[in-house]
């Protein structure tokens, strides 16, 4: 009697476990359909990419990639995105780490106001800033320059760095730097020699997320980039023609645009949760 019930319970448990895996698998499949479609469309011939009814089976081709990677505008846009996202990430990281450290270790006048303002900068709808930025760059003769783009995107990356780094610094045992300070290090030396090396995985994760945010940003880029600085999302957006739907080109450029971000994600998965929540949740 007892044995049979045990077997039953074992079978039920196996079914339950299998069911849980199936549900999760289904969730992942369902959630990834759009991205699966992008990937497969990039392997279709342009004439097959939008069809009625859609073409389910097809012979994959790399021709879209070959064409796209020999298009000068597209390569120029990749370079621009690398320069702008890289530059903005660098500025955000340097300023953000310093400020994050100050917020975590000191109580000083104005700290509340400044950190609140930084949070607002993260939450502000971009529409509020699009028009003034445009006119600002014009007045400063900075429109369509890398400097303007990098400065503008610093507002996107910096808040993330500040709040995320603040949370990493709070977690860091204070004894480490106290020991260094007692030994005669200046605050700056302690920061450079002890503290920053200790939180470097955090810095890496935070700057990765800032990089991706800038890499994908669309609205600022649409209104503020020009011939010189056009970034990848604007270039992709433009690849859909006026009189035709060039889906092969659109999805191919989308896949190429995803590659760096996926690589970064793969290396920083551990700290990503902290990044997504501006340091409020430790992953």
């Amino acid at each position: 009697m007892k044995k049979i019930r045990g077997v039953h319970r074992g079978a039920a448990r196996r079914v339950r476990i299998a069911l849980k895996h199936c549900v999760l698998g289904a969730v992942a499949v369902f959630g990834l359909i759009p991205f699966f479609l992008i990937a497969t469309t990039s392997l279709k011939l342009p004439s097959e990419s939008v069809m009625t009814p859609p073409k389910w089976l097809f012979t994959p081709t790399m021709s879209n990639y070959r064409i796209l990677l020999s298009t000068p505008e597209f390569l120029h846009a990749i370079m621009n995105s690398l320069i702008i996202a890289g530059g903005a990430t660098l500025v955000s990281t340097v300023t953000g780490v310093l400020a994050g450290y100050a917020f975590s270790r000191f109580k000083f006048r104005g700290s509340g106001v400044v950190s609140y303002a930084i949070l607002i900068l993260r939450m502000v709808p971009p529409i509020t800033f699009v028009i003034p930025y445009f006119l600002l760059w014009r007045t400063l003769r900075l429109s369509d320059t890398y400097v303007a783009m990098i400065l503008m995107y610093t507002t996107l990356g910096m808040p993330l760095l500040v709040w995320m780094m603040r949370s990493f610094f709070v977690d860091l045992p204070i004894e480490m730097e106290e020991a260094a300070l007692v030994d005669g290090c200046s605050r700056w030396q302690a920061l450079r020699l002890i503290i920053i090396p200790a939180v470097s995985p955090g810095i890496f994760a935070a700057s990765t997320l800032a990089f991706i945010a800038v890499w994908n940003e669309f609205m600022f880029a649409l209104y503020n980039t020009g011939r010189v600085t056009r970034t990848l999302p604007v270039e992709i957006y433009n690849s859909l023609g006026y009189y035709q739907l060039d889906w092969a080109k659109l999805s191919t450029s989308a896949v190429i645009a995803i590659i760096p971000a996926i690589l970064f994600i793969a290396f920083t998965q551990k700290n990503i949760v902290r990044g997504l929540t501006m340091g409020a949740v430790k992953g």
Binding site: G31, I212, F218, P233, I236, S251, A254
Partner: peptide
């Protein structure tokens, strides 16, 4: 989903 540009 995080790394794909929303516009795409």
């Amino acid at each position: 989903p995080f790394v794909v540009a929303p516009v795409v």
